[in-house]
Amino acid sequence: MIEIFTYEFMQRALLAGIIASVLCGVIGVYVILNRIVFIGGGIAHTAFGGIGLGYLVGRDPLIFAVLFSVAAALGIGAISDKSRVSEDTAIGVFWAAGMSLGIVFVSVSHGYAPDLFDYLFGNILAVSWSDLLLISVLTLAMLLLVALLYQDLLILSFDPGYGEAVGLPVRELHLLLLCMVALSVVVLIKIVGIILVIALLTIPGAIVRQHSQSLKRIMALAVLLGASFVLAGLTISYQLNIPSGATIILAASGTFFLSTLLAR
């Protein structure tokens, strides 16, 4: 097994997977506790509009995916908070609009988009050093935010009513959390793709939460679980010559079902 990681592309893939595991272990727990998994799905699909725009203007699609993801997070949060439109309706509109924009942008762009499927279904083996740099910067920024606002995010996740009573800016914290989810989505798109991004973001934390109550312990164990899924997925996909992103998710899903049976 060790010899497969002597290849540089496998080393980049493993490093990207470990960084993503750290992010999933921390941000994914907040996604589960705040019950915003569906919002994450809407943001992920809206990001496809940014990817299409990147192809259209000939720039890095991930940069535009960041802009579209953050805009979707702020838009969903603002519309559901300040209008009569329900949250799931706002998510559905952004979801559909982002995907449609992406399709239009790609169709009118010049040339062929050879790695478009990588953004939809992921291709961790194609992660470049520039992708790793962007992923690392985004992950570090979010970990710093979590460290600075840990207590506030804890209150937001478990008792937002108490947070309002003691003067916490609950609405602003909620929007900030959505933006953090948006950036997490961008990090994971290159690894498992838009279609599977929410699975990797939530499954490790969901497994650990079935067996632990301490937030810090859940985060730490979720990071370890995520890294284990990445390692197992890369190894199995290399041996069987099957897609890496899907294999990682299948390893995580299988563990989740087994964990659920044991938790009962």
Rank of each mutant, 00 (worst) to 15 (best):
A246Y: 08
I249F: 05
S228E: 04
G42F: 09
A71H: 02
L231V: 10
T260L: 15
P61K: 09
G49Q: 09
L101Q: 01
L258R: 11
L15N: 01
S21G: 00
I236L: 13
F256L: 12
L234W: 06
A263Q: 12
P169A: 14
R12G: 06
L231Y: 10
I135P: 05
L140S: 07
H211Q: 14
Y112W: 11
S244H: 13
A263E: 06
A222I: 06
D159W: 10
G58I: 05
C179H: 09
Q239P: 09
F38M: 11
G98A: 08
L132M: 07
W95V: 04
V186T: 01
A13N: 08
I91Q: 05
L234C: 01
G193P: 08
G50I: 09
L33W: 10
H211T: 14
A199L: 02
P160V: 07
Q151W: 10
K82P: 00
G41W: 10
G41D: 11
I249N: 03
T247Y: 08
A78C: 03
E87N: 14
V166K: 12
S212K: 14
E172K: 15
D115A: 11
D118T: 11
L149Y: 04
F117I: 14
S83M: 08
Y55G: 03
M219R: 04
V223L: 06
I189P: 01
V85T: 08
R59T: 14
A141Y: 09
L23W: 02
E87F: 02
F48I: 10
S107V: 13
H211L: 15
S228F: 13
A251Q: 06
L153R: 07
S136E: 00
D115I: 00
L101E: 01
I19Y: 00
S214K: 15
L56M: 11
L33F: 10
T6L: 14
D152R: 15
V66A: 09
L261Y: 15
Y112D: 11
I103V: 15
H211F: 15
I39H: 07
V230K: 04
L231Q: 06
S136N: 06
I218S: 03
D152C: 02
M219I: 13
H174A: 11
F68R: 03
A65M: 04
P243Y: 01
F9Q: 09
G193D: 02
I189W: 01
I27T: 10
S69Q: 01
M1G: 12
A227Y: 11
I2Y: 12
L215K: 02
R171M: 13
T89V: 14
G163E: 12
V57H: 07
G54V: 05
W95E: 08
R209K: 10
Y162P: 09
Y162Q: 13
V66M: 11
A20R: 05
L148W: 12
L149S: 04
L74Y: 05
V230M: 06
F117G: 12
A246N: 08
I79N: 05
Q239V: 14
Y30H: 15
